[in-house]
Design a binder for these strands. Structure first.
Length: 289
DNA sequence: CCCATCAGCCCGATGTCCGT
DNA sequence: ACGGACATCGGGCTGATGGG
């Protein structure tokens, strides 16, 4: 499995990697002639190379999950955070993380693809079975990471329900109309302010049905308003929209949101995929060094 | 002992305020 | 109008804890 970096004959460019991942997602496991199709989608790679790459990838993830592979060298991250800390001056409030050598790893934002897989995994394995979800659905994440993501996801959903009709952060712009001299904020701001909170609470409630946890069943209606002023690097709108970070390179409908309905159940279950900005290939490189 | 859950910390991004 | 400072929020990671 250490061939990734070493076997120059089968060097994979970033583009090829991406094409490979997308092809994996496009052609489900049970697809007829799956590998032929995938090979066709990845320029410059033969069927054999495709298969080998898949095995390597799968192996890597398995090894990483199993803890056999030393984690990527996060020293660079640690270095930068250390630098930041020192630049910022005082170390923050008695952080127990001040165990000098143990710097917190920098988080890799969840991609929309991962989150979709997560939702599918929940659907398939049930809420709480993070291990199975990690193993068969979101293979790019450890059970712990899945659980952590789920925790935040749940909190997010709860808060959305709780705050469906009120903004977290008040603003003078919340006042958008006056009713019979009674100056009161509207049930929900009409402003198309695209702050996370606004977009997800106000915007979402305007555009989508009440955010139930199972958003797969709750596709938000298209809303020009919420999508009008996207925040850089953030998927727009939708109940779970801010659960994930940045730049999703999926070719998807314009208003694709997390948990947005008809994700084909056949899409990529149990297949390593890292659409979006996640640089797992990098991690594998580490793993193979 | 393993795993799930919870709580808290940390950091980056964004919104708002305020001085110029 | 613009830009900096500060406040707030969201998301990811980690440690503690409890249950099977």
């Amino acid at each position: 499995m250490d061939e990734v970096g070493s076997s120059s004959s089968c060097e994979w460019s970033r583009e090829q990697d991406k094409a490979f991942e997308i092809a994996l997602a496009t052609h489900p496991e049970d697809a007829v002639d799956r590998w032929e199709k995938i090979a066709k989608d990845v320029p410059g790679k033969t069927l054999e190379e495709i298969k080998r790459h898949y095995v390597i990838l799968f192996d890597d993830i398995h090894h990483i999950e199993s803890g056999f592979v030393p984690l990527p060298d996060y020293d660079s991250f640690a270095e930068s955070s250390r630098k930041r800390a020192s630049e910022g001056g005082a170390v923050k409030k008695g952080s127990k993380a001040s165990s000098s050598y143990h710097e917190r790893r920098k988080g890799v934002p969840w991609t929309e693809a991962e989150h979709r897989l997560f939702l599918q995994g929940v659907e398939k394995h049930g809420w709480g079975d993070w291990r199975s979800i990690s193993r068969y659905s979101v293979v790019t994440r450890t059970p712990t990471q899945v659980a952590s993501h789920a925790q935040k996801y749940k909190i997010r959903q709860d808060s959305l329900k709780e705050k469906k009709e009120r903004k977290k952060r008040s603003s003078i712009h919340d006042v958008t109309y006056v009713k019979n001299g009674d100056i009161s904020p509207p049930e929900r701001p009409i402003t198309c302010q695209s702050s996370n909170s606004a977009a997800s609470s106000a915007g979402q409630s305007a555009a989508a049905p009440p955010a139930g946890i199972r958003t797969l069943d709750n596709p938000p209606a298209p809303s020009a308003g919420t999508h009008a002023a996207p925040r850089t690097g953030q998927p727009i709108g939708g109940p779970v929209v801010s659960a994930v970070g940045t730049q999703v390179n999926l070719t998807a409908p314009g208003n694709m949101d997390y948990g947005l309905g008809p994700v084909s159940e056949t899409v990529m279950l149990g297949v390593p995929m890292n659409l979006g900005p996640i640089t797992y290939t990098m991690q594998h490189t580490y793993a193979h060094s």
